[in-house]
């Protein structure tokens, strides 16, 4: 038999789990399902959750008693480790291994995984060089290291800058514009000195780390699954980030006078 106080605690922990998922980049369908499954597994009768662009409203019903709560959602950056941990904790509740205290204790223990910054920057540099190589392959061009090397340098440095600015709490739009400026400026040096075989490919590949791929895919899948309002908000955010990066690219091409892109 669930008391009123227990119902309130379960509602609170459902809201907490849902917000954790939304803050770390889970799609709306997943956040809503986890919330409902968690509430039902902990013994509630009805769990209704409404997602809006920057918050959630949650109502639970148990023996005719309702309990409603609202939480604000702020973006903490995509972190699939947190999403995985919340989902696994839910699976353990459903398997009967966790009760309410076990679950909330597990949530409190989750420390978001962060890879070493330098390692990520090197991997992102390699990724953008790989994008340049994929471009060469798709157009049947021979392997040319100059393009790959300058794409690596531009994107690696831009990634370091992006992490530093994010850590210092800069607005993502400012962050992306500055990172795009730096990436394009570095790639432009290779173009200006004639060290790059395919200037357009090198400049394009060096800013591909700034394409908001996850928000774009989440935007479409939210809308496909019926969450049009969160989907539109994600699409708007992604478009703004793309525009901010575009501003940085244009500024760099103006400064270095390298209009090789179009």
């Amino acid at each position: 038999m669930i008391s009123e106080e227990e119902q309130r605690q379960i509602t609170r922990v459902c809201a907490q789990a849902t917000i954790l998922l939304l803050q770390h980049g889970a799609e709306s369908a997943l956040a809503e399902t986890v919330c409902r499954r968690l509430g039902l597994a902990l013994g509630l009768e009805v769990v209704e959750v409404v997602l809006v662009a920057n918050g959630i409203t949650l109502t639970t019903i148990c023996r005719g008693r309702g309990c409603t709560t609202v939480r604000r959602n702020s973006d903490r950056g995509i972190n699939m480790h947190v999403v995985t941990e919340v989902q696994r904790a839910l699976l353990r509740v459903e398997a009967g291994q966790f009760d309410l205290d076990g679950f909330s204790g597990r949530l409190a223990e989750i420390q978001p995984l962060r890879y070493n910054r330098l390692l990520v920057a090197v991997m992102v540099g390699l990724s953008c060089a790989a994008f340049a190589r994929l471009g060469q392959l798709a157009h049947g061009q021979a392997l040319e290291w100059g393009t790959l090397g300058w794409a690596f340098a531009g994107s690696g440095v831009a990634m370091l800058l992006r992490q530093t600015l994010a850590h210092r709490g800069f607005n993502p739009l400012v962050n992306f514009a500055l990172a795009a400026f730096v990436a394009t400026s570095i790639a432009a040096q290779g173009v200006l000195h004639g060290w790059v075989g395919n200037p357009r490919l090198a400049m394009a590949a060096s800013v591909l780390l700034l394409v908001p791929g996850y928000p774009l895919i989440n935007a479409v899948s939210d809308m496909v699954k019926g969450y049009v309002n969160t989907g539109l908000s994600r699409a708007g955010t992604a478009l703004l980030l793309l525009l901010a990066s575009c501003g940085g690219i244009v500024l760099a091409m103006t400064v270095w006078n390298t209009w090789t892109w179009l």
Binding site: N79, Y115, V120, M123, V124
Partner: peptide, 14 residues
């Protein structure tokens, strides 16, 4: 070659 950006971006997404 495509496996490289998949891992690189997976690390951005933690």
């Amino acid at each position: 070659v495509a496996a490289v950006p998949a891992v690189g971006f997976a690390m951005i997404f933690n």
